[in-house]
Design a protein around this nucleic acid. Sequence first.
DNA 1: GTTATACCTGACAACGTTGTCTACTGACAA
DNA 2: TTGTCAGTAGACAACGTTGTCAGGTATAAC
Lengths: 330, 330
Amino acid sequence: MREVAAAARVSIKTVSRVVNGEPGVTPRLAERVSAAVERVGYRHNLTASSLRRTDGRSSSIGVVLEDVSNPFSSALHRAIEDVAVERGFLVFAGSCDEDGNRERRLVSAFASRRVDGLIVQPSSEDHSYLVAERKAGTAIVFVDRPPAFFDADTVLTDNAAGVRLGVQHLVANGHRRIGYLGDLRTIATAAERCRGYVEEMAAQRIDVNQRLVRLDLRGIEKAEAATTELLGSEEPPTALFAGQNMITIGAFRVLRRLGLHRRIALIGFDDILLADLLEPGITVIAQDPALIGRTAADMLFRRIDGDRSSSEHLIVPTRMITRGSGEIPP
Amino acid sequence: MREVAAAARVSIKTVSRVVNGEPGVTPRLAERVSAAVERVGYRHNLTASSLRRTDGRSSSIGVVLEDVSNPFSSALHRAIEDVAVERGFLVFAGSCDEDGNRERRLVSAFASRRVDGLIVQPSSEDHSYLVAERKAGTAIVFVDRPPAFFDADTVLTDNAAGVRLGVQHLVANGHRRIGYLGDLRTIATAAERCRGYVEEMAAQRIDVNQRLVRLDLRGIEKAEAATTELLGSEEPPTALFAGQNMITIGAFRVLRRLGLHRRIALIGFDDILLADLLEPGITVIAQDPALIGRTAADMLFRRIDGDRSSSEHLIVPTRMITRGSGEIPP
DNA sequence: GTTATACCTGACAACGTTGTCTACTGACAA
DNA sequence: TTGTCAGTAGACAACGTTGTCAGGTATAAC
């Protein structure tokens, strides 16, 4: 900046004014400065700028995801990015793989870089550590899963209601022996989904047979093993509800392998690319990650803009997409 | 920091030493400082720190992707992140949707935040603008596609060789009327893949029938339209090579719709989740985005660590995964 | 010609750090 | 006791900006 000032024969402050588009500089002078900026190859240093500014804004936000490469998380990420770029903000993103410590380390790394806001898809089971960030003025919004021991804005899917919709659909098609395959119970959404299953079964006056319920399945392989076991049991289910993406894939693989894919009904939570091209197409309870991400980002920027009202909790609905696998009769 | 210093009754510099783990502080004193840090709720400000440090490192890198939510890009992103966290670096990521201007804006935003390195999956057709960044000391690595008018390290897939492998496989299965469906020719990788097709056809002494070649297909729908047209023509192909993910999906959809999915062979470039569960499974030429990302990140950090040797150009091989669709005879 | 009024411009300090250099402390040998 | 030497601690400036405020310069009105 000093170089630019020298080249344009003005003071440093004037260069700053031009760079920031502040008023009070003659167009002619501004032109001279811009030319000098170009000539010297000057690049504005936003870190120094944010250090000095009274509001201390860094124009960046941090996004903590389960895994940037997982389709759901990355759709969130993209939606958030789209809102951020409109505001001239940049996005830090990190994955924590269901590891609470990694989540904390990420947040701390973001905090060191003085992000203006955080969007967290939590892995940890205690978010009281965020109190310090909040006090430092960082806006915080949770997506997909609620925080624990910490009050903040949230944007969640109604997981239980989604599962209930699916189970209801299976019952309407005549099923009563409905198996449930769920993810780690430590994941809040997985617990919610399982709750939805139990509640809807009760609402339909069907006793839950514990032998038809398999939980804590993480990854395709565990889902495959559990499905194989379930279908090989004495009184196998006539329908399966898969509580997550990878579980749906695992279950479908086994159904195919056993030649049961046209005989046993299957509904999965979360849509899957290509699910429509399988035979039969897989009926799913679809979330809308793009809408969730956009909503969360809008909320975050409202907070960054100074909204101090009490925390909001939004629910984004799910929707059932029938494609065949969920409509197989018992 | 001043507060911490006051609370621990030491000078600011001593606090700095403790925070940075510099030697020359008695363990007892360090303990006292750490306690004060905790008590005051102090958070190290990395932006101020990097401003002052002689090396000026921000411990962050920028990643420019086609789209953070696209499976290939997000796999790259994840692999890069994994290398970065090991080094204590944070990752800015942005999408540019094949828009060269967006790419430039992203790079400029990264530069303003003084990232130490850039990994670019380019959309632009002229990267001479990066000369300024390079001169400022930013390390730059290109992935997936080569830069134009700019010399830098690259990590690319051998696209032409991959396609040749696929075409060869089709010919070996008896096909001679092989259709080719390609992405926008402005995308370097798409051009390369098309070249592979032409070259292998020549090597097999088969004349390329221009009516069997459809290019500039962007997105599933355009691919569907082109496939429909191709298959409805007078002398339809007996096999199709789809030059990209979405094109493969579009082509398969049409084959299914026309009931030709067991009669016309199909090979796609890039693996697709669930491709093994379709009927028939889709034979693909698979890239290894995780390896590409990791390699690029390793390269970038070598440059950040000061490696000034001339630019390297690595090629990551592809591999064919046969699943049925590519083995259908004419 | 003088003064008032806008409007521009620049000197200086400060943001939260760290590099440099000086000064202090205590231990040990002479 | 004194001198030397590590080893440790602190004062100060500086990184690249911007906020504050004082000062300068046209222009217009008297």
